[in-house]
């Protein structure tokens, strides 16, 4: 267990991430999601909006952006200010560092992204509807895959947020919608497809089968974490990118 996970690193990272002033901002997209869902529930005449709103706004905006901020800061913030050397000087395996930090990111993304998504679903369609449960499962998948990618990015580059954003806007936003082949390598499609497997709703705009999504999601997550840990194990401290 200690080769893969270190509870001390987990707790320290959790405290450090939540202790920042920016942590409050994380709740903002989630609050907007819940607020608009409540407003629409109160006023909309038609029942077709929940999958569209919760699917598009939740899975292309709230979840990826929450994961981007959290996933790049669990490891990136320490690399940025140089304090990561103290952590890397301890005899904790680099894989354990990566996986522990990744776990913090997943837990926090579930709290700030997946749970609000579920609550919005409860407001819109009720606590046990297929859509709500599907959204919760899909959101959990999104939290895992996105954070693995962003933790890897912050081990690879000092400008993880910029590259993560470029990836979200260009790859997930543009190519995955236009090019069918890109869907096979899209974290958004994995999560939507898992949600769709439970909800069976074509408005979710999911294009992969459950099996493909699950297998590809696992492969991408493991590969990203392995690559991140590998990069971290030959880590050399640099100044800020000029």
């Amino acid at each position: 267990m200690t080769r893969l996970f270190n509870p001390v690193v987990f707790l320290v990272t959790l405290r450090a991430t939540l202790g920042r002033r920016q942590a409050l901002l994380l709740a903002l997209p989630a609050l907007i999601l819940i607020g608009v869902a409540a407003l629409l529930t109160a006023t909309a005449h038609s029942p077709v909006w929940p999958p569209e709103f919760l699917g598009v706004f939740g899975f292309t905006v709230v979840l990826p952006l929450t994961a981007l901020i959290i996933g790049t800061s669990v490891l990136g913030a320490e690399i940025d200010d140089g304090s990561v050397v103290h952590l890397l000087a301890t005899p904790v395996p680099r894989l354990a560092v990566t996986v522990s930090k990744f776990s913090v990111a997943v837990v926090l993304t579930v709290v700030f992204g997946a749970v609000p998504e579920y609550l919005a679903g409860v407001i819109a369609t009720g606590a046990t509807s297929r859509l709500t449960l599907g959204l919760l499962a899909g959101a959990a998948v999104a939290a895992v895959v996105y954070n693995a990618l962003f933790v890897m990015l912050s081990a690879l580059t000092t400008r993880a947020i910029a590259f993560g954003l470029l990836y979200l806007l260009v790859w997930e936003g543009l190519l995955a919608n236009l090019v069918a082949g890109a869907r096979l390598l899209s974290a958004g499609q994995y999560s939507l497809s898992v949600a769709n497997a439970i909800a069976h709703n074509s408005s979710l705009n999911a294009h992969l089968t459950l099996g493909t999504a699950a297998v590809m999601g696992c492969v991408v997550t493991v590969a990203a974490l392995a690559l991140g840990a590998r990069r971290l194990s030959k880590f050399s401290l640099k100044g800020e990118a000029a």
């Binding site: 901002l25 997209p29 598009v56 706004f57 952006l65 981007l68 790049t72 940025d80 400008r159 910029a162």
Partner: peptide, 20 residues
Amino acid sequence: AYATGSVAIFFFLTWTLALL
């Protein structure tokens, strides 16, 4: 990093929300 994030979140979130 945070400056980039806040600019992008503001414009991207409001743009998607408005279209939706």
